[in-house]
Design a protein around this nucleic acid. Structure first.
Lengths: 342, 342
DNA sequence: CTGAAAGCGCTAACAC
DNA sequence: GTGTTAGCGCTTTCAG
């Protein structure tokens, strides 16, 4: 059984260290049951030979892959939507630092909505450290959770699926309240897609604030967007036509808000002097907009990092929930003072 | 050897179909040497048992993992830069559709510059379908290529490393020429980081155009940015101070260009009436900017898709190069006509 | 505390 | 064509 191939195997390490493969394995995985002098010899052998464990063999033998799966579901046939949606990048950005140095790989799965059920089943079947569901619907999340408990969802999900929950309702409420505090009284709103859980919560918070503020009449001054810039642009134009004198807009995501800012200025109005705008997310769209967007920050990176740590720590408890605040980040679409900050 | 576990193995499939494991394997991988009736029986068994191949076992036995690795190198310790840089998302967006349905997984590696050499060695050691280097330096790319030929780089790289090459020089040249064609004569430029290969090419193209156009004197009206919005903002401010009458800017990436647009309008100038701006990339920053950016489109998605297909097709030939054009996308930072397109 | 041995589930020569 | 037989490189009982 001596190894001949170019890449050293654990067998080579064991031989070089003068121990058995079992012992070599133990020290390499720093598992208990090997000690002192032997550990050193093995480590030395590893260093000398430049040994690198074969992850496939390891996965096969142990029955578990050192990988976390990130799953995104696309709506259309267009699997490339990612390129234009900052959200997914942020979840990746949140996950990566926590995977740093823990010897776990990150696998990406973008599954078309149609085949999502099957695809999710396949992924759940491979025993990995677990999966982060970026935007799965409650049904899909539940389905995954039934097959594999090592999973956590990043969006509001049903029942027992462990999830990270941002205070979308509270954030939207706070945004409208802020607009009101600024003296705005004709507040329009651009909501997200009707069926989207996050969008529903944000809409709820917005409506509730309008109501509490005695602005109930404005509940009709709304349009539905698609969480993309184009939708925000179009919705804003529609709203402006519906009430040319509106003085503020709450827009349920930054991408749409960026489009709204473009629409508002294109009609000759000034932002924020004539109309104040507050977005949601604090994504890259917020800072690229001109003027930069005041927005409600959704701590996506933190949420994703927490989700990942949960998976790394073991199987998350069924029904586990972790709440995250959504906070106001003031930039220039709400403040008239032209300070030369950013 | 009958299997007892919950997940069916190929052994179960073989038994159910009344064939040997080898035959089952053949039809599952639709390899030659199994035919007609048997194929059907195996397929039926697969369907009935809900068999799903174990990827680890497959990888171990075949010596090759069905995975493509995407590698990004970060400059700082901050592995989360992704969240704010649209480029990486675009390479992912380009890769994913081509991996769709080919039973190959996508693995992400973000390695800090410091440990990049080691990390890259480890990745090269695992035999996968190959790696796409998103932003590796020529040295790192060469290093990887020495250990593993199944690799292609997305940025200008040294020698024999297969690579996708966008016409950065030509694109920058065309941008400046366009500004000139529009009647602009005081054209400033914001370049990228000094050592970045793409930035270098864009700078070259810009300078060459300035020269050919007889605008050599302007070669001094430049600033170096960092490929981030903040850098573009600051650079634009500096330039405006240096020459308050400048009437155009060529900015080497959209993120910086978005910052430049903000800076220009913040000083009371109008875009594009007072100063025209052309960015580079055609990333999400271009459309979120206000007004939306005219830019030179770098076909990142196409490049990434091509790179991936190359890997899927086998080992790319050493020194293989594929060129991509960089084309002008006209939006509103160069056109005064206020058509309501956006 | 250490080693021997038995697989993990699959593929790939090699015989039939 | 199809089945038999070895392993792939590692982990993990189980003895010693």
């Amino acid at each position: 059984m001596p190894t001949t191939g170019l890449r050293p195997t654990i067998y080579d390490v064991a031989r070089a260290a003068g121990v058995s493969r079992a012992t070599a394995s133990r020290v390499i995985n720093n598992a208990p049951g090997a000690s002192g002098p032997l550990r050193e010899r093995v480590h030395a052998a590893v260093a000398e030979l430049g040994y690198q464990p074969n992850s496939a063999a390891r996965a096969l033998a142990s029955g578990r892959q050192r990988a976390v799966d990130v799953i995104a579901v696309t709506n259309g046939p267009d699997v490339g939507w990612l390129g234009t949606h900052p959200y997914f990048s942020r979840v990746l950005a949140g996950i990566m630092p926590v995977l740093e140095g823990v010897d776990a790989q990150l696998r990406l799965h973008v599954v078309p909505h149609g085949t999502a059920a099957d695809a999710i089943g396949e992924i759940a079947a491979q025993a990995t450290l677990g999966a982060v569901l970026a935007d799965a619907t409650p049904e899909l999340a539940t389905r995954f959770h039934r097959r594999c408990r090592r999973v956590v969802s990043m969006v509001p999900t049903a029942g027992s699926v462990p999830g990270m929950e941002a205070d979308n309702v509270g954030g939207a409420y706070a945004a409208v309240a802020e607009l009101h505090r600024l003296g705005r009284r004709r507040i329009a709103a651009v909501h997200g897609p009707a069926g989207n859980p996050c969008a529903i919560d944000r809409r709820t918070g917005c409506l509730r604030a309008l109501d509490d503020l005695g602005l109930t009449a404005l509940a009709g001054l709304t349009a539905d967007g698609d969480f993309y810039r184009e939708g925000g642009h179009a919705a804003a134009l529609r709203l402006l036509e519906q009430d040319p004198a509106l003085d503020a807009m709450f827009v349920a995501c930054d991408l749409m808000a960026a489009g709204a800012v473009q629409a508002v200025t294109a009609t000759g109005r000034r932002v924020p002097e004539d109309v104040s705008i507050i977005g949601f997310d604090d994504s890259i769209a917020a800072v690229c907009s001109n003027p930069p967007l005041t927005t409600m920050r959704l701590p996506v990176e933190e949420m994703a990092a927490t989700a990942t740590r949960l998976l790394l720590d073991g199987t998350p408890a069924s029904g586990h929930r972790q709440r995250f605040p959504v906070e106001l980040v003031t930039r220039q679409t709400t403040q008239t003072t032209q300070t030369t900050q950013n």
